[in-house]
Deep mutational scan, measured.
Amino acid sequence: QTVQFNGLEYHFPNPEEAEKFAKKVAKELGGEVRVKDGRWQID
């Protein structure tokens, strides 16, 4: 599972970890999490 933001990609072994990370980062950055092409993106 991949999380993308600021032009970087973070890879996680399972979707739960990816989701948790994506939501944490979005909260800290005040961004929005969305899934695109099977990847988590933070904008």
Rank of each mutant, 00 (worst) to 15 (best):
E16T: 11
K23D: 07
K23C: 06
A22C: 14
E17P: 00
E32Q: 11
R34F: 15
K23V: 10
D43W: 15
A26D: 02
K23L: 12
L8Y: 13
F21P: 01
N6L: 12
R39K: 15
V25P: 02
G7C: 14
Y10D: 00
H11L: 08
Q41P: 03
Q4Y: 15
R34I: 14
A22L: 05
W40F: 07
P15Y: 13
H11C: 14
F12T: 00
G31W: 12
E19R: 06
D37L: 03
A22V: 07
K23G: 05
F21A: 02
A26Q: 06
R34L: 11
W40K: 00
P13N: 13
Q41I: 15
A22K: 02
G30L: 05
V33H: 04
G30T: 04
E9Q: 08
V35I: 13
W40T: 03
G30E: 05
F12Y: 02
L8Q: 13
K20F: 09
G7T: 04
N6P: 00
E19P: 00
P15Q: 10
F5Y: 11
E9N: 08
D43K: 09
K36A: 09
V33F: 07
R39Y: 14
H11Q: 07
D37V: 00
V25C: 10
V3D: 01
R34G: 07
V33P: 07
G31Y: 13
G7D: 06
E32A: 11
Q41M: 14
W40V: 04
E28F: 09
V25N: 03
Q4M: 14
K27M: 13
E17H: 04
F5A: 05
V3R: 00
N14L: 05
V25T: 06
K24N: 08
Q1I: 11
V35W: 15
V3A: 02
E9Y: 11
G7R: 04
K20V: 09
K23S: 08
F21Y: 07
V3C: 07
G7E: 05
L29I: 13
I42L: 05
E9D: 09
E28L: 11
Q41C: 14
Q41K: 06
R34N: 11
K24Q: 12
A26S: 06
V3E: 00
A22Q: 02
D43C: 15
E9A: 07
E28P: 02
K23E: 09
R34W: 14
Q4H: 13
G31P: 00
E32Y: 13
D37R: 02
V33C: 14
I42N: 02
F21Q: 01
E32N: 10
E16Q: 10
N14T: 14
F21G: 01
T2K: 06
Y10H: 05
E28S: 07
V3W: 01
G7Q: 05
E16S: 09
N6R: 09
K36N: 10
V25L: 14
G31D: 04
Q4L: 15
Q41R: 06
N14Y: 05
E32G: 06
K27V: 09
I42K: 02
A22W: 04
E28T: 07
A22T: 03
E32V: 14
I42M: 02
E28D: 09
I42F: 05
Q41S: 10
K27C: 15
K20D: 10
A26G: 05
W40D: 03
A22N: 01
F12C: 10
K36F: 08
V35G: 04
K24I: 07
E28N: 06
A18S: 01
P13I: 09
K20Y: 10
F21D: 01
N14I: 04
F21L: 01
K23A: 08
V35E: 10
H11K: 08
K24W: 12
Q41E: 13
Y10G: 00
Q4W: 14
L8V: 13
L29R: 05
I42W: 04
E28I: 09
I42D: 02
A22D: 01
Q1C: 15
V33Q: 02
G31H: 07
V25H: 05
D37S: 03
N6D: 09
E17W: 05
K27Y: 12
L29P: 02
V35N: 09
I42A: 03
E19Y: 11
Q4A: 14
H11I: 08
G31K: 07
Q41W: 15
I42Q: 02
E9G: 03
R34Y: 15
G38R: 02
G7W: 04
F12W: 02
V35M: 14
T2W: 13
F12H: 00
A18G: 01
E19N: 04
E16D: 10
I42H: 03
D43A: 12
D37E: 06
R39F: 12
G31C: 15
G7A: 04
V3H: 01
N14G: 07
Q4I: 15
V3K: 00
K24H: 11
N6A: 09
N6H: 11
E16R: 08
G38K: 02
K20H: 08
A18I: 01
Q4R: 11
E9W: 10
V35A: 06
E32T: 15
E17I: 06
K20G: 06
E28Y: 10
K20N: 10
T2A: 06
F5S: 02
E17N: 03
Y10K: 04
A26W: 05
Y10W: 12
G38P: 02
E19Q: 06
A18P: 00
K27W: 10
K23I: 12
Q1V: 11
P13Y: 07
E9P: 02
P13C: 13
V35Q: 09
G7Y: 04
V25F: 05
N14R: 05
D37K: 03
Q41A: 06
H11M: 07
F5R: 00
V25W: 12
F12R: 00
K24R: 12
W40M: 02
E9K: 07
N6C: 15
R34T: 14
G7N: 07
E9C: 15
K24G: 08
N6V: 04
F5N: 01
E9M: 13
D37H: 05
F21N: 01
R39M: 14
L8F: 12
V35F: 15
E17S: 08
N14H: 06
K27Q: 11
A18T: 00
E17V: 06
A26E: 04
F21R: 00
K36I: 14
